[in-house]
Nucleic acid binder design. Structure first.
Lengths: 247, 247
DNA sequence: AAGTGGTCTAGACCACAGT
DNA sequence: CTGTGGTCTAGACCACTTT
């Protein structure tokens, strides 16, 4: 792996990606990385560039540093991403050096029953779009999302945009439908993965899973999305960073 | 406010504090800060030093930058609720109309093993305080917290303060020890409640539970707390509200 | 003493936004 | 075009850890 000037990507990002791959393939937790000065010589970049790459990796929780001792690989299962407040599955997985994939298992339009009418704050019988997606990382199934959308707001939503063009749901909401989200409420709990989902996620029946419900509101405070997610507990950790804003 | 070389504090931290005060007193949300080059001249520091200070403020969520336009004051009330407010177990239960109770099951001082030394970023063998607490709501057991603190920072911590006087851990940290938290990283996952905890929480063995790890950093970025929580999935839901800042 | 990460300088050029 | 933040270099010295 070499670092090139002519690429569009900044040097420190190329360096980050290179180190990410090495962490994933060659190193294990608490292994020592080469010193900043060694990395600098090896890739012919300045020390500031090396430090910029390492700073980002530190923020992502992939490495930790000890003054006077060195830079070490963090335990990936303990502290995966801290990613600000990034709650996009795809971006989280990329940040962790894993290859995300999303497969649409179902795309249908149907009348809302009482439960979903209530969740989307529409009338029973109004049409809704149901989108069932399997999220994987490095070919390992991680999460099943069931997303329910009011048809009236997203008529013409194309599965192709999501699956083939790899656009995020929020990007399509904003760019194709002018629906910018203002608030997203998430509720996390633990439960047993249903037998049907367990087969898809390739875990034993009765396995525990992280369950997530999300309700998203647009700028006019209308509900634009209700999603139920079921997640393999051994493959996914939900990270949140709280900042004390009091100065 | 001036920046001085002779102080122990690095220049960029002095600059951070100076700008923090200005944000608090002189600016309001979305106000434009002076450009990096202006700040550089004003305080006679290099641009890298200015950028280091601004990077930290950006990570803290106090400012945001726009390429080509400038640096602006962020809205302080954004993104997830700060700890000590809605995410205090006690306040959350009160908000739900339930009567919270906390019982200290264990309070001990012991040498840190490798795992906890690593988690608290101290040396193996350094003393730590272990605090095990059972949280209940309306007499129903909900959560077991195991909190580990560096003894060097909290020598003299009294269990009485917590149990009898009903003060929160964060209140005691701040008021009795001058340790204000700056960042708290939480990792949520699902798992099976251990047999020992299942007895205490009065659930069947093997029941799923919401597992939480929290690492708290003080203003100097030192770790002041590491907590492991095990929660009854039928009694506790973790809620987060995301707000969209941009637009 | 030697090696590590942490801080700092004084430059330079690039990419983006507004005139 | 000017001014902004973003990236990058080639040095320097400091603070900490281990030998």
């Amino acid at each position: 792996m070499t670092i090139k000037y002519d690429k569009k990507e900044p040097l420190y990002e190329q360096l980050m990606d290179t180190i990410k791959v090495k962490i994933k393939n060659d190193y294990k937790a608490d292994d020592k990385l080469p010193s900043e000065r060694e990395i600098m010589r090896k890739y012919s970049v300045s020390r500031n560039t090396v430090r910029q790459a390492l700073n980002e990796l530190e923020i992502l929780g992939l490495i930790y540093r000890q003054h006077g001792k060195g830079t070490f690989v963090a335990n990936a299962t303990d502290n995966p991403a801290t990613l600000g407040n990034e709650h996009s599955f795809t971006k989280q997985m990329i940040a962790l050096g894993r290859k995300p994939e999303t497969k649409i298992m179902e795309y249908s339009v149907r009348p809302a029953n009482k439960y979903f009418a209530n969740k989307l704050n529409i009338n029973e019988g109004d049409r809704i779009i149901k989108l069932k997606r399997l999220r994987s990382a490095d070919k390992v199934p991680v999460m099943i999302d069931r997303t329910y959308l009011p048809f009236s707001k997203f008529e013409g939503l194309s599965a192709v945009e999501l699956e083939v063009k790899h656009r995020s749901l929020y990007a399509v909401f904003a760019e194709d439908f002018g629906e910018e989200f203002r608030i997203a409420d998430e509720a996390l709990s633990a439960g047993r993965i249903s037998d049907k989902d367990a087969d898809v996620l390739q875990v034993a029946q009765g396995s525990p899973g992280l369950m997530l419900k999300r309700t998203t509101f647009n700028q006019q405070n209308e509900i634009i999305e209700f999603t139920l997610s079921s997640t393999r507990s051994d493959q996914y950790v939900y990270n949140i960073r709280y900042k004390n804003t009091k100065i």
